[in-house]
Amino acid sequence: MTSTKAPSSTSCLLLAPVAVLLLVFLVASLNRSGAGSDGLGVLCARRAGADHYAVAAPEKEAAPAEPELSLLVGILTMPKLRERRDIVRLAYALQPPVPSYARVDVRFVFCNVTDPVDAALVALEIMAHGDILVLDCAENMNDGKTYAYFSSVPRLFAGAPYDYVMKTDDDTYLRVPALVEELRGKPREDVYLGYGFNMSGDPMLFMHGMGYVMSWDLVSWVASAEEILARNDTVGPEDLMLGKWVNLAGKGKNRYDLKPRMYDLNWNMDNLRPDTVVVHMLKDNRRWATTLRYFNVTAGIEPSNKLYRLP
């Protein structure tokens, strides 16, 4: 008879952070999956005991009216980029309020967290912020992560579907109220919106990966479209592949190109514009700082000669 060796105490310690992460994520997912959201992801203050963010409300709050539109923003990132997420959270939290007619939830999106150190620290983020989705995939950029995101959303939020679902990245600054205004008058079905990429004379063959929006029906179709997997079309430049999915299926007929309000920040960082919806290529803190200064994100800070002196 072959004996089974008991796990060592060192192995148990290494696995403990992973177990914490899985437990926290499972509880958060169960609480969110059927209840929808009463808040704005990383954009508002967190209620005590809640697993997501919400606007603080008086004790005797009337039942909120159903919003005209709802939007889920998924920011694809990696577990190790904690400093970047902290900057992005602050940048979004200090934006002007989203119009009352809209509900917007913002989530950071990872694949499986396999490193025990990352697992422990991501677990802290989940407990503190409640704004993380962990998908069942291997971490990657162009090897199926975007497909995993869009194909998972209909199941994760089946109890409270959104009108629109956005994919963007952690080097992108999205001005949420501006995007909401753009979406308000748009159809709620068969919508594919973003920075249209010009190829073969078609100015909107696909939308650039800096950030694009699809209506809920298109996202639901992606989750059920067996032909995407049959063609192995999850592997390759993610924005180009998504365009291929909808083009071959004859979907996304309501297409909207938001150029020039969506753009890459150039080398000299001098092409920022006041009507921006999305600015991309914020690859380091200097580019983030330039962008935040341009949009006066910290203009409301109170002066204090005693506590701090900022340039």
Rank of each mutant, 00 (worst) to 15 (best):
S215W: 01
M210L: 15
F150C: 15
L71Y: 03
P116G: 11
W288L: 06
T168V: 01
P58Y: 05
N305K: 12
R175A: 04
G209A: 11
V104K: 12
D136G: 10
R273S: 08
A138G: 15
G196I: 00
L282E: 08
V176A: 09
V18M: 15
K145G: 14
D171I: 02
M214N: 10
M141D: 08
D170T: 03
N112D: 14
A128V: 10
A148S: 11
G201V: 01
G194L: 04
K306Q: 06
A289P: 14
A63I: 12
V213W: 12
A119H: 05
L22Y: 15
N247Y: 11
N254K: 09
V213I: 13
S152Q: 11
R89W: 01
L133P: 11
R89C: 03
L183E: 05
G236K: 13
T234K: 11
R261S: 04
K306A: 06
M166S: 01
N142A: 06
T172A: 05
A299I: 02
R231W: 13
L71E: 00
V109I: 09
F150H: 15
D264L: 08
L76P: 08
P161G: 00
V277I: 15
P311C: 04
A57S: 12
A56P: 12
A57Q: 14
S11F: 10
D163T: 01
W221I: 03
S33E: 04
G185K: 14
M166I: 00
T146V: 12
K80S: 13
K253Y: 03
Y195S: 04
D264W: 06
F197A: 07
M207Q: 10
A120W: 14
N198G: 05
E302T: 12
L248K: 14
D105P: 04
V122M: 14
S9D: 15
V191T: 13
S3I: 13
V27I: 14
T10N: 15
L121V: 09
T172I: 07
A128R: 13
L193Q: 00
N268P: 02
F295R: 03
Y53I: 04
V88N: 09
L94M: 09
W216Y: 03
L124S: 12
D270M: 03
L72C: 02
I87N: 13
Y173G: 00
W267C: 08
R175L: 01
A19S: 06
Y149P: 11
V55N: 02
G159M: 02
R231Q: 15
T10D: 15
A45C: 12
L30A: 09
A123V: 02
R85L: 03
S29F: 08
L183Q: 05
A6L: 12
K5M: 11
D163S: 07
Y263R: 05
R89D: 00
D115Y: 09
Y192W: 10
R231S: 11
Q95G: 01
P154Q: 01
A54K: 02
L81S: 13
L40T: 13
R188G: 02
V180R: 07
N254L: 06
V180Q: 03
N305R: 11
F295S: 03
P79E: 11
S220V: 00
L272V: 04
A16G: 14
P99I: 01
A63D: 06
E227H: 15
R286T: 05
K253V: 07
S215C: 06
A6F: 10
A56F: 05
E181D: 13
M78T: 13
A28P: 10
T2V: 10
F110G: 02
D136V: 10
N271Y: 00
G36W: 00
L282P: 07
